[in-house]
Amino acid sequence: MIATLEYVDILDRSEMLGRMVLNSEVFEAYQEAKLALDNDSEAQQLINDFNAVKDQYEDVQRFGRYHPDYSEIMKLVRTRKREMDLNDKVAAYKIAERKFQAMLDEISQYIAFSVSDKIKVPKDGGALTDSGCGCGSGGGCGCKAS
Rank of each mutant, 00 (worst) to 15 (best):
M103K: 06
A3W: 10
D59P: 00
G125Q: 02
K123L: 13
R98P: 00
C135H: 03
Y110Q: 11
Y70G: 02
I119N: 04
G139Y: 11
E28I: 10
E83C: 11
H67D: 08
M103F: 05
G138N: 07
L11C: 13
N87F: 02
Q109W: 05
S131D: 12
K123G: 01
I73N: 00
E97M: 12
E97K: 11
K81A: 08
K34M: 10
K118E: 15
E6Q: 13
L128F: 15
I107R: 02
G125P: 01
R98Q: 15
D40Q: 05
G64M: 11
A112Y: 02
L104N: 03
L76M: 14
V77G: 00
D49L: 07
G138M: 10
K118A: 14
G142C: 11
L46N: 00
V21H: 00
R78D: 09
S114I: 07
L76H: 01
I47R: 04
C141K: 05
K94W: 01
D117Y: 04
G126R: 05
G140L: 14
L22W: 07
S24F: 03
S131V: 14
N39Q: 15
S137F: 09
P122N: 07
T4K: 08
E106H: 10
P122L: 04
F50H: 01
Y70I: 01
E72M: 12
Q61H: 09
S71V: 13
D59W: 06
S114L: 08
E106G: 10
N23H: 09
Y57H: 08
C141M: 12
K120P: 04
V53K: 01
D59H: 13
Q45D: 10
I107C: 05
L17G: 06
D59F: 06
R19T: 08
E6V: 13
Y70K: 06
V21C: 05
S116F: 06
N23I: 05
K94E: 05
L86S: 11
V8N: 09
K123N: 06
A92F: 02
C135D: 03
Y57E: 06
F63P: 00
M74I: 14
C133V: 07
A112V: 02
Q61I: 06
C135L: 09
M16A: 14
A29P: 00
K75Q: 14
G140D: 10
T129V: 13
E97G: 02
Y30P: 00
Y66C: 11
L11W: 10
V21A: 04
L11E: 12
V77M: 03
K118F: 09
A91P: 01
V26R: 01
